[in-house]
């Protein structure tokens, strides 16, 4: 059965849409990531206009983050004080991102910028994650290796406006999480991702937050950032297709349940290593598409 997506204005088989949601949902359940970095490129690859893919994925991430944050909230693993500052930064950043998005769309370079952002940020996080997990795997084979401190303080933590975050056991400048979230917010708006794949490592290594508060707090923040993007894109470009988002979600919710079960069978560093390989594979595919000579150097676009 085909469905004509009202905003994307294309016809897709309903099994393809739900299957896509299920596949990406499986991986996100397995690795504990949102999966936007996989979903958005796949939607574009399937013929969804890139602007619709980015905005619709923001809408879907609102739903998946809400369903993810509830469990963390119940366990008390959301640092609302830190979350509040991250939300403030994220709202500023994502608003700038949406503005930037429509400027780039007007000068017809949005596709290129989306692709380049993916290449750069997936490349960096993929390589870092791969190195980190390789080190962790090697370390487990050498018992007796020294463990580092809980977190290292650096000059960034000493910036003005220091705030105490009890839940995360931190006393650092509020400017650091604010600007981190603002930066990730810009990327969220342009790339159609929640930004967890940048935010989570940055919260651990840059802010020095304990791991157990990081996931819940980042999910909490991502809800607000992607909700902001959904509303702003609805107003500015009318590219949010909630029918598409809803169908993807159906698949994603079910896929994530199975993914989480498979993920429980593997060790943390093995999972991170595997995720790093997937991230790098997506990155390489995008590099390949940018570099090889296209089949037809001409392309046509309907102007409205």
């Amino acid at each position: 059965m085909y469905i004509y997506l009202p905003i994307a204005e294309i016809s897709m088989h309903i099994a393809v849409v739900i299957g896509l949601g299920g596949g990406v949902g499986f991986l996100s359940g397995m690795f504990g990531v949102g999966g936007g970095f996989l979903m958005t490129p796949l939607l574009i690859f399937l013929g969804v206009p890139s602007a619709v893919a980015v905005s619709t994925e923001a809408n879907q991430i609102v739903a998946s983050s809400v369903s993810g944050v509830l469990a963390h909230w119940r366990r008390g693993n959301v640092d609302f004080k830190m979350g509040g500052i991250l939300v403030a930064g994220g709202l500023v950043g994502s608003s700038i991102g949406v503005l930037l998005f429509s400027i780039l769309r007007d000068i017809r370079q949005i596709d290129l910028v989306i692709r380049l952002s993916y290449v750069v940020f997936l490349g960096i996080t993929g390589v870092l994650m791969l190195m980190e997990s390789a080190r962790a795997i090697l370390r487990t084979r050498q018992p007796g290796a020294k463990r580092g401190k809980l977190h290292q303080h650096n000059w960034l933590h000493g910036l003005p406006l220091k705030v105490r975050f009890r839940k995360s056991k931190l006393y650092i400048s509020a400017l650091l999480p604010f600007f981190l979230a603002a930066f990730v917010g810009v990327l969220s708006a342009i790339m159609g991702v929640g930004g967890g794949f940048i935010l989570v490592p940055a919260m651990i290594y840059l802010l020095g937050m304990p791991t157990y508060t990081v996931i819940g707090t980042s999910l909490f923040q991502i809800i607000f950032v992607t909700a902001n993007i959904t509303i702003l894109q609805s107003v500015q470009t009318q590219t949010v297709d909630f029918v598409l988002a809803g169908l993807l979600l159906v698949g994603a919710v079910i896929g994530a349940q199975f993914g989480a079960r498979v993920g429980a069978l593997l060790r943390g560093e093995q999972l991170r290593g595997l995720l790093a390989l997937i991230v790098l594979a997506v990155c390489l595919k995008l590099v390949f598409d940018l570099v090889i000579t296209p089949e037809d150097v001409f392309s046509v676009e309907f102007l409205k």
Partner: peptide
């Protein structure tokens, strides 16, 4: 769209 997503996310959880 946001309310729909929040509701759907809550329902799924």
């Amino acid at each position: 769209a946001v309310c729909f997503a929040v509701f759907a996310g809550w329902l799924a959880a």
